[in-house]
Simulated scan of single mutants.
Amino acid sequence: MSFFSNITVGQYYPGNSLVHRLDPRAKLLAMPLIMAGVLLAQGPVGYLAAGLPILFGYAMAKVPLAALWRGMRFLWIFLIISLILQAVTYPGETLWEWGIISVSREGLLLGLRLIYRLVLLVLAAMLLTMTTTPVNLTGAMEKLLQPLKRLGVPVHELAMMMTIALRFVPTLLEEAEVVMKAQQARGGSLTTGSLEKRLGAAVALLVPLLAGSLRRADELAIAMEARCYRGDNGRTRLKQFQYRYLDFLILLILFASTILVGLERWV
């Protein structure tokens, strides 16, 4: 059974929806507003106001539920562990007890709120990468950080590094899948055997992955030099970004949603 091939983190889902057509700079600016709303949410109105923009974004982007589930499937293990830890370690009214283990009502509610926030944050990040190409992300990031260039910050290089890292996540996962299948064909496995054997198999998996990453980095550097890449000196762009009224409207709605969440928390 495939272990890494179904992970969709960092992958772009082609489309022509309203979310796909938004200016990449507007989508990047929307992320801090969404994150602030999610982290500030406390009551029912706040949780609803923080989650609805993300759900509407997926509805407008028309991303298949299967792709969404593949991107979230491995997160649920971490979320369930976090819920259990919060429920058994946080003091409060006991709902269930077995020996020295007790589940508190306050801990369970705290764990559910934590899971809700983490899921919304991951969904927001996935919506950004699924509806924006790496090239557009690079350009938008560079445009937004352009004022820092006057202070000597290598804005273009930083944006390029982050985009290359994001682009090669699916490639590394595919390579890890190939190495795992090769090890299984030779009798090795990460999921069976004693703990010592599993650790040995994990080390055997990391070594070829590291070697492959270094090889790909060297090949990428040679390819960029062969194409006379010299950073952003004298560089022009085929596609110019331009804000539209819809971009400002989306940002205004998100800003109002964040204010609503903050008012419920502090008023």
Rank of each mutant, 00 (worst) to 15 (best):
residue 5 S to W: 03
residue 8 T to M: 11
residue 11 Q to C: 06
residue 12 Y to G: 00
residue 16 N to Q: 12
residue 16 N to C: 04
residue 16 N to R: 12
residue 22 L to Y: 04
residue 27 K to R: 05
residue 30 A to L: 07
residue 35 M to A: 15
residue 38 V to N: 03
residue 40 L to T: 13
residue 42 Q to Y: 10
residue 43 G to W: 09
residue 46 G to L: 05
residue 49 A to H: 09
residue 52 L to M: 12
residue 54 I to C: 08
residue 55 L to M: 06
residue 58 Y to H: 04
residue 59 A to C: 01
residue 63 V to E: 00
residue 68 L to Q: 07
residue 69 W to A: 13
residue 74 F to Y: 14
residue 76 W to R: 05
residue 77 I to R: 12
residue 79 L to R: 03
residue 79 L to A: 11
residue 82 S to V: 03
residue 83 L to D: 09
residue 83 L to W: 15
residue 84 I to N: 05
residue 94 T to F: 11
residue 98 W to K: 06
residue 103 V to H: 14
residue 103 V to E: 10
residue 106 E to H: 00
residue 107 G to I: 01
residue 111 G to L: 08
residue 114 L to C: 04
residue 118 L to K: 07
residue 123 L to M: 14
residue 124 A to H: 12
residue 126 M to I: 03
residue 136 N to V: 02
residue 137 L to V: 07
residue 142 E to H: 05
residue 145 L to G: 00
residue 147 P to L: 07
residue 154 P to M: 02
residue 158 L to Q: 02
residue 160 M to E: 10
residue 170 P to R: 10
residue 174 E to Q: 13
residue 175 E to N: 03
residue 176 A to V: 09
residue 178 V to C: 02
residue 181 K to H: 11
residue 185 A to D: 04
residue 187 G to P: 01
residue 188 G to W: 10
residue 188 G to D: 06
residue 191 T to I: 06
residue 193 G to L: 05
residue 197 K to A: 11
residue 197 K to C: 01
residue 198 R to A: 04
residue 200 G to P: 03
residue 202 A to R: 07
residue 202 A to M: 15
residue 207 V to K: 04
residue 209 L to D: 10
residue 210 L to C: 11
residue 214 L to W: 07
residue 214 L to K: 05
residue 215 R to W: 06
residue 219 E to H: 12
residue 222 I to G: 02
residue 222 I to T: 10
residue 223 A to E: 00
residue 228 C to L: 14
residue 232 D to G: 10
residue 232 D to C: 08
residue 233 N to L: 15
residue 233 N to H: 12
residue 236 T to D: 03
residue 236 T to I: 12
residue 240 Q to R: 13
residue 243 Y to Q: 06
residue 248 F to E: 08
residue 252 L to Y: 03
residue 253 I to L: 15
residue 259 I to Y: 13
residue 259 I to A: 15
residue 260 L to D: 02
residue 261 V to N: 05
residue 262 G to M: 09
residue 265 R to C: 07
